[in-house]
Design a protein around this nucleic acid. Structure first.
Lengths: 207, 207
DNA sequence: GGGGCTTGATGACATCTGTCATACGGGCTC
DNA sequence: GAGCCCGTATGACAGATGTCATCAAGCCCC
């Protein structure tokens, strides 16, 4: 039996969800949780240590995020890497694209019925991919992020409401340059202040 | 047996969590889920209809929020109202205070182990109150929100990055007055821009 | 009724922001 | 090498923002 068992790593910072999912998945005869993590650091370490068949990672997890952890897990595995399923609350097409590019096998929003998760795990374990149909559809129709890397970078810093001088210091650019980037980002997003731009970019999942 | 059964309403907009919790709690012999909801509107309607003993409500739920729903459920029950347990991701002392004032019986962060939830439900069902010790402690030590109602109101509008003129229109005040309120809010929070003030107030759970 | 407090408003001023034209250097391609 | 983007930087200018002093109206309290 043990070679037909699917060995799982489960990582989510919310104990409530992780605990509930863990019990639920463990009820399945062919699934076994071999490790649980609440941080990305632990997730990467435990994946190294336990070599699970499938890793179910929450996207929103400290200290970095699930996507970052996925990249590390895939990069560090020296044999066959685990298949990775990302679970997320705010399922944005932009993130889906990045996830697939990083080699993730499954992309599941938290609006998925719990009962279906076991089946998705099985599918992914045998090499299939699973992407939530809803998100896939919007990823195909939605227009891409129009912002350049630099624009995104300054917007990220602008999110907390810092003045231009602080942003400039944080990204190592001249204040005037920062204003140029902010200005063009605002124009592209059709808003009147850089804070509105940061807010919008954040809502879209671009930063 | 049926009079010893605790009848539960479970409301959370995340299918994944709601489904997992539902299966988990239903495994307990003395608990039975009688209704599930994904919105506050449904939660209120189903509470009216099914008269559960305990309602477990997520705080972050569309279209309003769990606290609002709790108030409505308590106000509309004409016999003995259901006991209410609020579950939340971002457990902030300010919210805890408002919840207790509204007559909520339990306050549980999502960092609580899933296994403990059943016991909390039982405690609350017999009339006890449960408050997460961690949050209770910070609620007692943490200093209150220093902002006035008006300051909070303008900060709420400032969150999306709107210019002063828009905020003024939204709260029906003169632009100059709005700037005064923003200015004093910024001074109280020790930040340099109104956007930083809005960000901070948001982080603290004040808006 | 007078004094004091609170809420909303106004105007003046310094500073910060957003816009735009422009410039410089490093890679590209031709 | 000439021409051409691209990223970065600067300066100038209008308008928005933050600060502050002040004022009018309403309200409470004695």
């Amino acid at each position: 039996m043990s070679d037909r068992m699917i060995r799982l790593l489960l990582a989510d910072d919310e104990e409530l969800l992780r605990g509930a999912l863990s019990s639920l998945l463990d009820l399945e005869d062919d699934l076994r949780i071999v490790a649980e993590a609440a941080t990305t650091t632990d997730a990467v370490r435990l994946a190294d240590q336990h070599r699970p068949d499938v890793a179910v990672l929450d996207l929103e997890m400290p200290p970095t995020d699930g996507l970052h952890a996925a990249g590390q897990i895939l990069a560090r595995a020296d044999g066959t890497p685990p298949r990775i399923i990302l679970v997320t609350r705010h399922a944005r097409p932009a993130v889906l694209r990045r996830a697939l590019a990083a080699g993730v096998s499954g992309f599941v929003p938290k609006s998925t019925p719990a009962a279906r998760l076991a089946q998705i795990v099985r599918d992914v374990a045998v090499g299939h991919r699973y992407v939530d149909p809803e998100i896939a559809a919007s990823a195909l129709t939605e227009n891409d992020c129009p912002l350049t890397d630099r624009e995104l970078e300054v917007l990220r810093e602008a999110r907390t409401g810092s003045p231009v001088s602080d942003i400039a210091a944080a990204v190592h650019l001249a204040p005037g340059t920062v204003r140029n980037y902010l200005s063009s980002a605002m124009a592209k997003l059709g808003v009147a202040t850089r804070h509105a731009a940061a807010h919008k970019a954040w809502e879209e999942g671009w930063i």
